[in-house]
Design a protein around this nucleic acid. Sequence first.
DNA 1: AAAAAAG
Length: 607
Amino acid sequence: MSSYSIERAPAGGSGAGANSHFSQSNYVPPHLRNRPSPTEQPAAPISYAGAAFGNDRQGYGGQPGGGIRNGGPWSDVNGGGRGGGGWNNRNNGWDRGREREVNPFQEDVNTDPELGTEENTRINFDAYEDIPVETSGDNVPPPVNTFADIDLGDALNLNIRRCKYVKPTPVQRHAIPIAISGRDLMACAQTGSGKTAAFCFPIISGIMKSNISVQRETRMPRMAFPLALILSPTRELSIQIHEEAKKFAYQTGVRVVVAYGGAPINLQLRELERGVDILVATPGRLVDLLERARVSLQMIKYLALDEADRMLDMGFEPQIRRIVQQMDMPPPGLRQTMLFSATFPKEIQRLAADFLSTYIFLAVGRVGSSTDLIVQRVEYVLETDKRSHLMDLLHAQRANGVQGKQALTLVFVETKKGADSLEHWLCMNGFPATTIHGDRTQQEREYALRSFKSGTTPILVATDVAARGLDIPHVAHVVNFDLPNDIDDYVHRIGRTGRAGKSGLATAFFNENNSSLARSLSDLMQEANQEVPAWLSHFAVRSSNGGRNRRGGGSGGRFGGRDFRRDSSFNRGGTDFYGGPHINSGYGGPSGGYGGGYGSNVTSAWD
DNA sequence: AAAAAAG
């Protein structure tokens, strides 16, 4: 039997040095990784060398490959050796001097300056002021107004500045203090609300602050012991979370590794062997890795499940339960768990009850529900007219576009076949398009996404694989060529535009085949102050399907979910719920942030 | 019914 202890080496090992300090291990805990590397030897106790850090990294803003030693523009922040316990200047002592941590911010410099017009990049913070936020639970830590209000550590704060995040989004304002205080969290929030940072910041900060040391299982030297696990439903979302997490963890010494299917497993295995603190994964590939005994979950201290409702929709519940409950992961209470979900149906409630320990419930209003950031249009289009109608839209858009450029347009269709044939047809007709769906190889999918993002093929035809979570900046227009059957899917799809406070356009092609969606669609549009065409209202009346497709049925109202503990036997002593929810709205007061106001180039922490 | 995810 292996028991869990944060400070101790994994039990059941060979008995070598099972105490709280690392000894002859390959593993260098993050808080010790800022030491100079002693040549090629496995990390052995080294005397602390003060501020003389070997900063063998690529200099920020420098030429690729032009390594700068401890002299980059940030060396003032980085080389100070100040603060207790070597808080900053964690460098990758990891690699024992060999591997360079690629600067994840480099690629962002000069990306698509054309697309970043004044209008597009200015953040519409005001539009979010009235996003409702609801928290409930025992002793909820108060929200913060700036990132600086929380002690995330210098290195992380620096990366927040590098990301140009000025002030926290509503979900971050609430979730970060909750998570920092060690509490479990069930959060109802959409992608685009800033979730990724909301769970990454506390994890990275926690790993840096803790003195967790992992004793490698000497009989299984190839087994990886991540401290944090982030599960997400699709490969692309995992890739995206990984990319963001790498930015947040840059030069913190915290290592982030991603594992997902469809890609060569050997590369991922090699990455894992180099050490991993935060593992981002899709469920299938992780189960594979666990079965191969290449990953152990017994050191997991943080577990984050992103888009949990989506994962259940996709039938991942068995895999997820296997990973969380039937492997060697510490139970609730001995780990910190954060569950994110756009909706809160019964299955998610069960998951929350099983995975979380006296958690805090947080619901953030739908982005766009109370604003006009996304202009929604519905047009009546017969199946046979859809293609020519799309063509008209694209022509008009090109004519209105900047320098005759096609604005990025995401076209959702129902089937994989339909995606392929529409892509082909668009290309034939002079509209550079590509497609992303589950029948394409992972390589093709990633290539398509890159080609779209870069504007090489400004039209992307997609199935629902791209509906949720994917952050593609600058998507100007989402076309629901085929409407989904579920209104939540619709919300997710149109959420691919109007991101980061930018405005966006969503056009839907509606006909008889979509009548089941009429009611919920017209309700949703009404709620978002959109113009609802009269004919759609007629459809809505005619197809009174008892509100089966209406939002909020059963699983919650406008927040996409309620804390069910207050509805049922979870009440203590029959009294009311824990003292009632605290209703907060938007940002309270002005932001101290990082000073400097918001220039036109400021991106926000929304994504 | 279709889509996604482990090969």
